[in-house]
Design a protein around this nucleic acid. Structure first.
Lengths: 232, 232
DNA sequence: ATTACTAATATACGAGTAC
DNA sequence: TGTACTCGTATATTAGTAA
């Protein structure tokens, strides 16, 4: 446990961010504990300790000057910051998305049949990037989410073309990238699918994914899930 | 002090971010303390406490279900998150910039004369958005920064055109948006200025700004400053 | 001025537990 | 199962101080 690198917690990350804001990412920046402390709304001692910990964790390199210190954010530090940045981007970039909430229900088994037809499956592989499990997760939307569904329709979907074989024609469909959130667990690589002509119930949602979501998320009928429909 | 809203520290903000990642920004999300705790790498109790604090601070609204809870990030919470996001954007969007480090020196007084000439001043007002103080802050670059200056030249500058009067011609110049960082204090609205034909010393930097930087930042000869040249 | 130590205090944490 | 208490302990913080 001795030489182990300490992990960077939120407090240290906030300190690292302040250093980055002052230019510590592209070269060393000269600071004092006092100025850092002010930016962190903490005491000089705390600022001093934070810098020591960041150094221990290998996220900054320091050179004491007696008259302040020169601090440079290392590659590891930049990685930590960028990871945080990416999370915030995820938060605010899919801001235009819609969260739909409802309960899992038994589908009528129709989905399974249509989805596995080669005319659709080939397009899924090409346009969604995966071959979906042959079945849909059915979600019955809450009252509040029914109107939210209208906002989903405003988002730009992936279009699946209609096609025909010898016997009949199969209509086009829309797919919206979505993630299924269950109790803090998030399954990201999914799509809401709906026929283009939606005589489909407006309070029903069908979700496809590379895996069987019921099993993957341990879902049973009546369980509540959130489906986050994201902008493409 | 009683009814005062608690401030949101880094730990609470990290919790708020996790809730936002789960969709708490656009509608309530169902979570349990246990799932949140896992995401925060902390205990259930800590997750519970964090949620209580966020609620006290007015950054989330909650509804206990007995079987978990529905949590919605309030407007105040979204503002807190967005503020953080903006800081990270500042960090990584000016990533293409260059930090130059050096010591303040006495200029030769030439800058003052040229800058205040109407032929230049009019362009400054129009293209930089301000009328600079009639004088430049001279910075003698460190060894390491001399090569960094080459990277600055690669950035896209604001061009100030040459002009002439009855007596002589005045050459064109380049201006790079920059901020001057001194001990954690940052003065943002400044520009590095250099003649287009740079027989100018490569280890000297001249900075202009709406105010007299020496006074504004309390600078004296020999003091060390960082000049952050930012992408336009 | 600095940084960073020591020591006293405040706060945070998680095990156990109630509901 | 949940959430959220209490409570003993660990950690963080800051004032004072040394170098």
């Amino acid at each position: 446990m001795q030489g182990q690198v300490a992990s960077v917690g939120p407090d240290e990350l906030a300190t690292l961010k302040q250093l980055a804001l002052l230019g510590g990412l592209d070269g060393a920046v000269t600071v004092t504990c006092a100025t850092l402390a002010e930016r962190l709304d903490a005491s000089n001692q705390t600022a001093s300790r934070r810098l020591q910990r960041l150094e221990e964790a290998g996220t900054v390199e320091r050179e004491l000057l007696g008259d302040g210190q020169r601090v440079r954010v290392t590659e590891a530090g930049e990685r930590a910051l960028r990871g945080e940045y990416e999370q915030y981007r995820r938060v605010f970039e899919r801001d235009s998305g819609v969260a739909l909430h409802g309960t899992v229900t038994s589908g009528m088994g129709e989905g399974r049949h249509y989805i596995s037809l080669p005319g659709y499956m080939e397009q899924f592989a090409e346009r969604l990037g995966y071959e979906p499990f042959a079945g849909t997760l059915n979600v019955e939307l809450d009252e509040g989410s029914v109107e939210a569904r209208a906002r989903m329709d405003a988002l730009d979907p992936v279009r699946i073309d209609g096609w025909e074989d010898d016997d009949r024609t199969y209509g086009p469909a829309f797919c919206w990238p979505a993630s299924v959130v269950l109790d803090g667990d998030e399954y990201a690589e999914a799509h809401v699918i709906a026929p283009e002509r939606t005589h489909h119930d407006a309070d029903q949602l069908e979700v496809i994914a590379p895996e069987k979501l019921r099993e993957r998320l341990g879902l049973e009928d009546g369980e509540e899930v959130t489906v986050r429909v994201t902008e493409q």
